[in-house]
């Protein structure tokens, strides 16, 4: 059976400057050559700093954006595979029921002029699901699933706190029994104690409905908690992906290592020397040549500014780093300023 979702060589480029005839001259390469696989009932954590293209990848998979290149193979029923990247919005409409989204900002993802009932009802109505009465019953059921009382049916979003709004968003996403839910930082706007509530709810629902989550987040601890597999992005490229254990316990790519080292842990006993990564994420319209990470990389080699690393398979995980490519791994170390591995703490 084909996997639920297979993204191959996805490129999302936005035109930055145009020439006289209105054709793009330079591009912002938000997502460049990304390959992902997501199996049924699995949670894939997509991690990266801001500007790494993780949210754009999520939007492109749902075709809220049009990718420039690549294929998005989606197989909701286990039989027929559709290439979402090649379809028009109209062709996509019948497939929409299988893929949904949970947004980052619960204050902008609910229409303030609609009641909770209308909001949760909308996907059912749009897809012509059941009779009017059946739809209303389904809404009650969904709110129950999301842990909300049906007293709330006629309330407007302004009556709810962030956590409750996120529950409404989850109820709406569940309405059509999707097989894939793209979650764009679903808990990062919430308070700590509410985060835990929402994460628990999401994990329960996943087990119950065999949902697959593409969980986009910058918080490594949250991803460590919820994900089965993890993919790390940097400046629009995928640098490493593997199982949670592989990524967190034995990261291979220098960026993954630095990211893990920089991420603070809520445990004072584990205070340790930290690798402080110098510099900042590059501007996606002006990326460095070769490996995009080389200007910040503590282990950069002389070949890194020239050669774009290819995907290398090591122990069932993918890494894109020249350190792991046979041809280049013995290159001399690149002397550069500002990217030293400083240990403070």
């Amino acid at each position: 059976m084909p996997p639920l979702l297979e993204v191959k060589n996805l490129r999302v480029w936005f035109p930055k400057e145009r020439n006289f005839f209105g054709n793009p001259r330079t591009w912002v390469k938000a997502v460049d050559d990304v390959c992902l696989t997501l199996r049924r009932g699995e949670t894939l954590g997509l991690v990266g700093e801001s500007g790494s293209g993780k949210t754009t990848t999520g939007f492109a998979i749902l075709r809220a954006l049009t990718p420039r290149e690549g294929s998005i193979l989606f197989c909701p029923d286990g039989r027929k595979t559709h290439d979402l990247a090649a379809m028009t919005q109209k062709q996509l409409r019948p497939l929409r029921r299988h893929m949904q989204m949970i947004f980052q900002d619960p204050f902008s993802s609910l229409n303030p002029r609609m009641t909770v009932q209308q909001i949760v009802l909308e996907p059912l109505k749009v897809n012509g699901e059941g009779s009017a009465q059946e739809r209303k019953d389904r809404v009650r059921e969904l709110l129950g699933e999301a842990g909300l009382s049906d007293q709330f049916l006629n309330r407007y979003p302004h009556a709810f706190s962030g956590g409750q709004r996120q529950r409404i968003v989850i109820a709406r996403a569940l309405a059509l029994n999707p097989s894939l839910i793209v979650c764009d930082e679903p808990v990062s706007a919430l308070d700590v104690s509410v985060q835990a509530q929402i994460l628990n709810l999401m994990m329960d629902l996943k087990d119950k409905y065999n949902l697959a989550y593409l969980f986009v987040a910058h918080d490594l601890e949250v991803v460590r908690h919820i994900a089965d597999r993890v993919a790390v992005m940097y400046a629009g490229r995928l640098v490493e992906d593997g199982t949670k254990k592989q990524i967190f316990d034995d990261p291979l790519h220098p960026y993954t290592r630095s990211l893990l080292a920089a991420s603070p842990k809520p445990d004072p006993t584990g205070r340790r020397s930290r690798i402080v990564l110098h510099g900042e994420v590059p501007d996606p319209s002006n990326l460095p040549g070769g490996c995009v990470f080389h200007p910040r990389c503590p282990r950069a080699m002389t070949c890194c500014p020239e050669v774009v690393p290819a995907q290398t398979l090591i122990d069932g995980r993918n890494v894109r780093c020249l350190l792991y490519e046979e041809r280049y791994k013995d290159c001399p170390k690149l002397q550069q300023t500002g990217a030293a591995e400083g240990k403070i703490g």
Binding site: G163, Q164, R224, H225
Partner: peptide
Amino acid sequence: ALMKSVIGSPLADDGRLQVIRGSV
């Protein structure tokens, strides 16, 4: 409760997170 609800803290469990009932 706060310590138990924070992922990765010494008091938090690995599976289900403890949550504080209700909201502020």
